[in-house]
Design a protein around this nucleic acid. Structure first.
Length: 467
RNA sequence: GGUCCGGUGGUGUAGUGGUUAACAUGCCAGUCUGUCACACUGGAGAUCGCGGGUUCAAUUCCCGUCCGGACCGCCA
């Protein structure tokens, strides 16, 4: 039956649904049916694959609730001689085992779980789970501590809400790629093994490389600027970065996914912010369109149809606002502490109804050497805060080599150590700027999770390198 | 890296200088006419993180150690 369709037809999701239906009418069983699609299959013989979510073994009937990544469904088996083989299998079944069940799906309004049940004719256990799990993965308790859940992350991720986080991550990333590819950006993959430490202000990991010391990339910074020098105009990269920071907080990791972009021919950092604002809004739009209902049900997330403009508050003005409105003075003169970040986020929400706020024009003392300075000696740079946490640092870069060298020297960076980087600026390079965006920090705040670990597939931190 | 807090059945907690170490949940067995966080009855399951000290006696008090968490600093 399948043979009459071409490969390209099968690859087209639109066609595939039509073909599915077509096949379904004539072939009694097909391979992979997602549980969310089950209402399309009433009174038909289907084969389901899933994890055993619950078993209720009563005197005359057995109920097995199956779960896949898209939902749950009840399988009902009467206890009688005809079904004895299946009854015996179910009796020794354990929760979280995987099974393959073939049977007829009926609409049953009296079944609380989705008003349907599958009456099986074949029941196969494809893998048996041990009797007791090392963590509690019931969605109504789920009370195991975090350490243990990280040790058994593969089980923790079986929770529906955890899967939803990664669906959202996929859509967020896809939305950014979509925006950029439609706006003449090119995706790059810069190396993560570096002969010279890259610049982000953070510490680097050293590793042995055939007897010499090399470094793990802290940021694609230098390479996305190289792409500017290569005439690529606009680039982006979504990839891992490594930070040897012994940070014990809920929002740091030693390895994380950084979303970076860089664009040419800008007039100031405001052009970079314009872009980032568009990208962020596009991400929210896609999340709302594709996952809005689920995110509202499970996480109570409400997306606004139209996001307000992100306010842009100069750094020193932000300091003044925090002092005047909230009577708080941070200890650091040239940067914000956590409390100031929270407060300026609060201020932006109150005054501008925006969960996002740009803080702009930081003093040079708080910024790396490659940020461009304006006439007053402040950097043409910005941070983007989302719900009171820094998710981005960006800037116009200094592309004039003499000034760049001078700024590196002021920061105490030996010029010969970054000579390969300075080279990018010696043979013509457009004015440019860009930003780095912490996807997990965004997701952590979006989902109102306690830690970056809750929205990371596998977290890596100072005390966590396994599993 | 700094400060503070914590480690008790599979899991989450309670508690105590001498206990049969409690409760919930999970697990196992049985009972139960369709459950749906099924219910009921019974059962198994803990050398109370590790090492040392004080004491007649330590899971409990003290010291050390390991592991973890929170906050701060560093940054995305």
């Amino acid at each position: 039956m399948l043979r009459q369709f071409s490969v390209s037809q099968l690859k087209n999701p639109y066609m595939r649904d039509i073909i599915r239906k077509d096949i379904y009418g004539s072939v009694p069983c097909m391979k992979q049916i997602y549980f969310c699609d089950l209402p399309n299959y009433y009174n038909q013989t289907i084969e389901l694959h899933g994890f055993v979510d619950k078993i209720r073994d009563l005197q005359f009937v057995q109920f097995v609730v199956l779960r896949d990544s898209s939902g749950k469904v009840q399988v009902t088996i009467e206890k009688n001689d005809e079904l004895k083989k299946i009854n015996d299998l179910v009796s020794k079944l354990t929760k979280e085992s995987t099974v393959k069940v073939k049977g007829i799906l009926y609409e049953r309004p009296n079944v609380k779980l989705r008003g349907m049940e599958l009456i099986p004719s074949e029941f196969v256990i494809t893998s048996v789970a041990a009797e007791e799990l090392p963590i509690d993965i019931l969605d109504y308790t789920n009370k195991s501590n975090k350490e243990l859940r990280l040790d058994n992350r593969f089980l923790d991720l079986r929770l529906e809400k955890n899967y939803l986080i990664f669906k959202a991550q996929t859509i967020a990333e896809a939305a950014m790629r979509e925006y950029w590819t439609e706006h003449n950006f090119v995706e790059i993959h810069s190396p993560k093994i570096l002969g010279t430490a890259s610049e982000s202000g953070a510490e680097v990991f050293k590793l042995d490389y055939f007897g010499r010391t090399v470094y793990l990339a802290q940021s694609p910074q230098f390479y996305k600027q190289m792409a500017m020098g290569a005439g690529f105009n606009n680039v982006f990269e979504i990839g891992p970065v490594f930070r040897a920071e012994n940070s014990h907080t809920a929002y740091h990791a030693t390895e994380f996914t950084s979303v970076d972009c860089e664009l040419s021919w800008i007039d100031s950092h405001h052009d970079v912010m314009d872009l980032e604002e568009e990208v962020c809004k596009h991400v929210e739009k896609r999340l709302r369109e594709k996952l809005g209902a689920e995110l509202k049900d499970t996480f109570k997330i409400e997306f606004q149809e139209v996001l307000p403009a992100f306010p842009r508050i100069p750094f020193y003005e932000a300091k003044r606002i925090i002092e005047e409105k909230y009577h708080y003075v941070g200890e650091k003169e040239h940067d914000f502490d956590r409390k100031e970040e929270e407060l300026i986020g609060k201020y932006a929400l109150k005054e501008y109804h925006s969960e996002y706020v740009f803080v702009i024009d930081y003093p040079f003392a708080a910024r790396p050497f490659y940020h461009m300075l304006d006439d007053s000696g402040l950097t043409k740079s910005f941070d983007l805060l989302y719900k009171g946490i820094e998710i981005t640092t960006g800037a116009q870069r200094e592309h004039r080599i003499e000034i760049l060298e001078k700024q590196a020297t002021i920061k105490g960076l030996p010029l010969d150590s970054i000579d390969f980087y300075l080279n990018f600026f010696r043979y013509g390079i457009p004015p440019h700027g860009g930003y780095g965006y912490g996807l997990t920090r965004f997701l952590m705040r979006l989902f109102d999770q306690e830690s970056i670990r809750d929205v990371t597939f596998l977290y890596r931190g100072p005390n966590r390198v396994n599993p």
